[in-house]
């Protein structure tokens, strides 16, 4: 069926090289931002950059963007469950 042809999606070398350069750039950004005293938001900035980096890896390197959408649902459910665990633990730790 036509709907599934994207699972055989072929991307050239160049797209991946651009993504790789972006990832290296973001790594340099996260390392240099850690030298500034940003106080409480240091962790938030580092995590934000890590989330951007991982979404690039998952979407492009792991082909989730081009693959069958069921894999995206899989990951979404797993990440949601993990976030709920994080949230409940954080609430417990904070307000104990």
């Amino acid at each position: 069926m036509e709907a599934h042809t994207e699972s055989n999606h072929q991307t050239g070398y160049s797209t991946y090289i651009v993504v790789w350069l972006t990832l290296v750039g973001l790594t340099i950004l996260t390392v240099s931002s850690s030298s500034f005293e940003l106080g409480a938001i240091t962790l938030a900035v580092a995590m934000l950059i890590a989330v951007i980096k991982s979404s690039l890896v998952v979407n492009i390197f792991m082909h989730i963007k081009f693959d069958n959408k069921i894999f995206l649902v899989f990951i979404g459910v797993a990440v949601m469950i993990l976030l709920v665990c994080f949230l409940f633990t954080a609430v417990d730790v904070f307000f104990r």
Binding site: T30, S34, A46, S54
Partner: peptide, 19 residues
């Protein structure tokens, strides 16, 4: 292999960049 990379993306700032 990308998952191994992905985990490191989070390990790196949490251990090496907190000072």
């Amino acid at each position: 292999w990308h998952l191994v990379d992905l985990i490191w993306i989070f390990l790196f700032p949490l251990f090496y960049l907190i000072h």
